[in-house]
Structures are given as structure tokens and as C-alpha cells.
Simulated assay, not measured.
Amino acid sequence: MAKFLNTSATNYFLEELIKNARDRLILISPFLKLSDRIKELLEDKNRLKIDVRIVYGKSELLPEEINWLNNLSYIRTSFCKNLHAKCYLNEELCIVTSLNLYEFSQINNNEMGVLMTRTEDNEIFMEAYEEAQRIIRISEEVRVSLERVDQKNEPEENTKGKLTTSKLAKKLGKSTDELLEALVQKGHLKRYGDKVELTDSGKALGASHIKKSRFGSYFIWPEDCHLD
């Protein structure tokens, strides 16, 4: 039987919904702005290789949060124009609510929601699930930088023995931003405003620029690459 949720109950069941997702998680919210607790839970889902889809209408992430999100391989983001719905689902639970995913809403606002389960509220649960799927279908899968993700005609690139920038940074004990800056200083990358491009030096090093993929564009580097 569907259950009414007040502010604190909505927060509680939203956390439980995310924590207990075993195969998939759908988060639909107008604003892509995440509380620290939600980020922590999403990182755990990514480690467990759970398929997570976030649909949003407007991004309010800071640059460092964008880098953080783009490094989570199992979390996909989609942009939906004129989105105002707030709906959160896993395989068993669905919450339709006024609650956003950011901290101010979770702490300061008076919110309401309704909790449904697939077992006890199957008909309404499936209606909400189908509507969530429709919203995903009409959305455009993007990186948070709003570069379109083109899933067609992806180039075949030999990535054997190569690491993404974030994985290479982890191997070298640096943050991704620190490694990017070091690569710019070495002349392997060149900055153009807020973008970076691979130079001839970087190509000679064995690096490649993957321009089209499920996760947007990124650089790959030889796994034995060092900055000495």
C-alpha cells in the first residue's frame, strides 16, 4: 500500500532506495545539484557497478563536482528540457516527491512524497516506471559539460595498455586536475580557454583523444606514462 512521506521520511526512504538498488537506479530531478550524502551513496553504487541514470533539467554543479561525476563510469546523465518532475526509483521502490537532491531542500524545506513498492503497489509502480522510461527516451544523454554523447558510429580505438586520465592520475598519486596541469606543463596538452587539446608531443608519447564514446570525449595514455 502506498505510503505518505513527510520531509524526514522522504529523506530516509530516498537514502534507503539508493542504498538498496541492486541492478538499476533512476533519479529524475529538475536540478542536478547533489548533497554530500547523495554523492557518497552514488560513489558506492558506482563501485558496485550498478547502472545509474540521472535525468535533469538544469545543472548547478561546480567544476570540481563535474569532474567527480564524469569519473563515475556507471553513472549516466541525461538532459530533459522543461523537466519539473521529481521521481526516484530502484527495482523495488519508487518515490514521487517535491524533494530535490540537494542539501538545502533536504534540510530547510517542508517536503511531501509518496512511497510505492513494486510488490504491494504494482500497477501504480509500473505506471511510474514507464513514465520514467519515457522521460529517459525523450532526454538527450550528455556529459555534464553538455557535450552530446553520440552512441552511433563510435570509432574503434586500441585502448590496450592505456589508461584514462583519471586512472593514470590515481596510479601516479595525483588528482585528475593536477595531472592535467602537469601534462600541460610538459607540453603534452595545450589549453584553449577551459578546454585542453592533445599536442603532437602528447601523440608522440602514445596518447589518444577518444572523441565519441558512451561517456563523452576523453584522453587515454600509455599505462607506463610518467612525468619525469
Rank of each mutant, 00 (worst) to 15 (best):
N122T: 13
R191S: 10
G206H: 09
L93S: 01
E92S: 04
S35E: 06
D200Q: 14
G187H: 00
R76G: 13
F215H: 09
F104M: 12
N71H: 13
K195F: 05
R47E: 06
L168S: 04
D200N: 13
T164H: 07
D121G: 02
L172I: 10
D44R: 08
A169Q: 01
L99P: 00
K171P: 02
C80D: 09
R214V: 14
N153F: 15
K195T: 01
V184F: 00
F215C: 11
S213W: 08
N100Q: 05
K170D: 05
Y88K: 01
V144E: 03
G216C: 05
S145C: 14
Y102W: 12
Y12D: 10
T7V: 10
K160L: 11
S59P: 00
N158G: 11
A85R: 09
H226Y: 03
E131M: 13
H209T: 10
S105E: 00
C225E: 01
E64N: 10
N67M: 04
G216Q: 08
I136N: 08
E197L: 11
N122D: 13
V142Y: 07
Q106K: 14
C87D: 10
G161E: 07
Q106R: 07
N71R: 11
K49Y: 03
L180A: 09
L93G: 01
E130T: 06
L227H: 03
F31A: 04
L93V: 04
H226C: 09
P30A: 15
T164F: 01
Y129M: 12
K45G: 02
E92R: 12
L62E: 13
I75E: 04
L180F: 15
L227D: 08
T7C: 04
K39F: 03
Q185V: 06
I54P: 03
L69F: 05
Y12T: 14
C94L: 02
N11Y: 07
N6L: 11
